[in-house]
Design a protein around this nucleic acid. Structure first.
Lengths: 110, 110
DNA sequence: CCCAACTAACTTGTATGACAAGGTATGTGA
DNA sequence: TCACATACCTTGTCATACAAGTTAGTTGGG
């Protein structure tokens, strides 16, 4: 019915910003890192359009660089706008988490 | 850009199940309770279709009862399928939260 | 040399679900 | 009579996750 993909909506964008925040990263790498963090395999059909969108909206800038292993990589870096958006995301995320926690407080064990 | 509505995707369904779990409730009441819990005003255009969907999918059953204040209310109650779905939701929710937490661990203060 | 496998990015089409806007109807109080 | 709160529902729109497929570069094995 409603698999986890709906739960991910909106969350992924913020998480990707956070991955890039530390140091610039390219799409393929980002999807690996998310998988490491425990996210269930995020499809490429998800990640690349999302990155393009973020770039178009000015949250990311990109530069191409050659790869020693394959075609050139497109490295993304956060803009100032991206930093702001990341902070906004995290604030809203924490807010949502605390709402849900409040609702489930008292009977999580069951 | 991406307001909180995308963050809510999928979460709302589980939260509504949780609200109903304790005791049967009707739509109007549920939206009040969510607002109490801190959720930003959940629109009726969201809540009623969602309840109908859950009923159609067998997670909820409904009975109409008169109201002392207005038109009759449609009271929803969890089915066994609904209980299972609620548990599933909560498990997946906790999993997502811990993934995001892992990603943001170390620099939440900023 | 060719082919498989991995790396790397992108496109198209589909489904889901939140929401705005609007409609219908009942009860209360001024 | 009229405004307002209660109560439910429908239609249409938008954002976004994903499957599946496309294009390309590199490496290593047969």
């Amino acid at each position: 019915m409603n698999d986890r993909t709906q739960l991910l909506k909106g969350t992924l964008e913020g998480c990707i910003l956070q991955v890039i925040r530390g140091e610039e990263a390219y799409g393929y790498e980002i999807s690996e890192k998310l998988r490491m963090a425990g996210f269930p395999a995020v499809s490429e059909g998800t990640i690349y359009p999302l990155l393009l969108r973020l770039e178009k909206n000015g949250l990311l800038t990109a530069t191409y660089r050659d790869s020693p292993y394959g075609p050139r990589r497109k490295y993304y870096r956060l803009t100032e706008l991206g930093e702001v958006a990341l902070k906004d995301f995290y604030r809203q995320w924490r807010e949502l988490v605390s709402c849900v926690d409040r609702l489930f407080a008292g009977n999580e064990g069951e």
